[in-house]
Design a binder for these strands. Structure first.
Length: 237
DNA sequence: CACCAGGCAAGTA
DNA sequence: TACTTGCATGGT
């Protein structure tokens, strides 16, 4: 018997017996989280451009710090594609400094904005008129735009019914036996999207509620599972 | 002080 | 294919 010595990560906790991620169960979890936390009002942006910028800036970064960077961009009238395209790299990096990884994110923002201008004439609306699967594939080809960033953009800026999978989703649903540790993000996304109605408003709120729950109860090293609204999941499900 | 945050790409074996 | 590492600020 392998015994845990330190329990450094949540994934060290052996999950309960596997249970099927059927619509009833996933919707029950959603309803419980919504009843507990209420609407999360995602995505907190005034425009699609602002949302897209935020999606890049929040990569592996606390949202609090992204807010500061966005406030800087707003004050400098940089929350539009043309301004972002024309600004010097060093100036953009200075503006987004509080969100961390600023040199990297400068290049990523420039790449994404440049792509939208070149490929879609600078029209985010026109970009979203493209077929979603094809658009997703094209966006993944832009340097610095990975699966979670793409799916966030499609869901929260484009209102496309794409379920966003992040580390929190993996943690919670692995812990409760709905996915296997060996499932990659694409597999997890498939489980959710085959089990839930393809409703952008539902996917929007569900992902936001997962993040909200995990922030409070599912820290990597100090999980507070007993206080989590889903703590009694095996019994009520 | 250590650890974490609404990831991604490049490098290594 | 499956890890590991760099990127960087700011809060707990």
């Amino acid at each position: 018997m392998a015994q845990r010595k330190h329990s450094t990560t949540l994934t060290d906790i052996p999950p309960p017996r596997r249970r099927a991620a059927n619509p009833t169960r996933l919707l029950s979890i959603y309803n419980r989280l919504f009843a507990r936390f209420g609407p999360q009002r995602w995505w907190p942006a005034e425009t699609a451009c602002e949302m897209i910028v935020g999606a890049v800036l929040t990569q592996n970064t606390a949202w609090r710090n992204v807010e500061k960077a966005i406030a800087n961009l707003r004050a400098a009238n940089l929350l539009n594609l043309v301004a972002l395209h024309n600004i010097a790299d060093a100036d953009l990096a200075a503006a987004i400094r509080p969100s961390g990884f600023f040199n990297l994110k400068t290049l990523r923002l420039k790449a994404l904005v440049g792509w939208i201008i070149e490929r879609h004439g600078g029209s985010i609306k026109r970009m979203f008129s493209e077929e979603t699967a094809a658009l997703r594939g094209e966006l993944l080809g832009v340097k610095g735009i990975g699966p979670e960033t793409v799916d966030s953009i499609l869901l929260y800026a484009g209102q496309k019914p794409i379920f966003v999978i992040d580390a929190y989703t993996r943690r919670i649903f692995l812990r409760h036996g709905f996915i296997a540790a060996s499932d990659d993000d694409a597999a997890v996304q498939h489980i959710f999207m085959k089990s839930l109605p393809h409703d952008a408003a539902l996917f929007n709120e569900y992902h936001a509620l997962i993040v909200r729950t995990a922030k409070d109860y599912c820290k990597k090293r100090k999980p507070n599972c007993d206080a989590c609204p889903l703590a009694d999941l095996p019994r009520w499900l």
